[in-house]
Design a binder for these strands. Sequence first.
DNA 1: ATGGTCGTGGGACGA
Length: 259
Amino acid sequence: MKIATFNINGIKARAEALPDWLDEARPDVALLQEIKSVDDAFPRDVFEARGYNVETHGQKSFNGVAILSKLPLEDVARGLPGDEADEQARWIEATVVGDRAVRICGLYLPNGNPAPGPKYDYKLAWMERLKARAQALLNTEEPALMAGDYNVIPQAEDAARPQAWETDALYLPETRQAFRRVLNLGFTDAFRARVHGPGHYSFWDYQRNARERNDGIRIDHVLLTPQAADLLTGCGIDADIRDRTKPSDHVPVWVELDA
DNA sequence: ATGGTCGTGGGACGA
């Protein structure tokens, strides 16, 4: 089962690039972030025509997440638990039934800039709620994963110029600590389990020719429960997608599970 | 130090 996460930065703007990537990469499951669309405006027919089941959790103009799956989706849930007043569409999860059932969560973690400030407070509070959901997933002792745009640069090796991010909400010590607290519950960063060293990024800013200079950061992650990590057979970043016509500023990150 | 680029929606705001 191939599962990919992709921050598409607007479904309308990716009307060509997203289907093209799906046809090439052929993921069984694609977790999308920043669809920037309400549910009714999401072009689900484009994906249903390719054999995908479509579940969205949209919002007008901003945020918004979705799951595309060639396998049946069960028990779909929208919204990260822990704050009934939170109206931002940043979390969707479902059980994907292949050879085995896998609980799959798609997330768009708040950016948090500028820090300090209310947006950074929201980011840290959101990460606390994430930790609670993560612990609940572990407690099931079933294969599960949480994948998406974490807006977290975990370590210096995950940025081409880490010094440039020192005061940024994506790399502040408190941000990285909150991310480690989730990992330390018992999750595996799928990419780092298989690929070591610097130079592997999932985001390049549109500005300052960041892609041409490979001035990137690795902020899109797939975190696996131990039972999912047992099934891990591959992981990759489709960096070349960033060089296509009208690309997102993020690229897909994928895992292959024996499930 | 500043501004540089996108997307949404049709003006700012978010990233």
